[in-house]
Design a binder for these strands. Sequence first.
DNA 1: GTAACTTGTTACCTTTTGGTAACCATGAAA
DNA 2: TTTCATGGTTACCAAAAGGTAACAAGTTAC
Lengths: 112, 112
Amino acid sequence: MDNKVENKVENNSCPFTATIALIGGRWKTIIIFLLLDHTRRFGEIAARMPSISRKVLTEQLKELESDGLISRKQYKEIPPRVEYSLTELGQSLKPILTDMAAWGQEKLLDTV
Amino acid sequence: MDNKVENKVENNSCPFTATIALIGGRWKTIIIFLLLDHTRRFGEIAARMPSISRKVLTEQLKELESDGLISRKQYKEIPPRVEYSLTELGQSLKPILTDMAAWGQEKLLDTV
DNA sequence: GTAACTTGTTACCTTTTGGTAACCATGAAA
DNA sequence: TTTCATGGTTACCAAAAGGTAACAAGTTAC
């Protein structure tokens, strides 16, 4: 229960180091983007990210949750149902993620 | 000589995957940010990033160069002098990096 | 002659990250 | 009573990333 955001950045005064610690890596921006306007189940996220393994997806979701970017709601049903959505902090990344996607699309992917 | 940006994203239609491939990792955003308004020598960059090893800094600079984000100018002097600066593509990241820094500062570092 | 300066490179080792495959729980359907 | 569905977990292994320390090279300062 001591996995608050503050812990991640304890000895850090660099805003990039702090931000990259939360949204860096190959998957986290994609996961957050997928959740921007939707609550989604584990299986839905996995289906939209075919190249991530279930193990790593589980790990990334746990980290995002403990960093306060997403929240996890588990229903006591069988078979299990778990829904992920963004917290306010996660939602506040929207402009940055939107700009990143636009930059990548324009500068790296468009075939002119 | 086939290290153009296109190679990085060959099989990729995801703008995040493409963007993260270029500026992801612990160091690259910081390096680009340091170069935003300045041409800097290797030693200057190293001095401002005490926690990166010289080996890794060299590697990161090479990758940034081959991805077209920075350019390297080597003077034929002894001792060597090498200056790094942003390309136009690198400069185009400025708004995103500025927003990231501001977000990290406000959401993660400010002690209210 | 020798040491220092600057920007690397190289060899070697440790840590981190990520993958695969097998397994679990439990209620419903066949 | 066997199977399926969902959202994981675990053990084990491979690959990637990163660190340290030693070395290079040629001119200048001592």
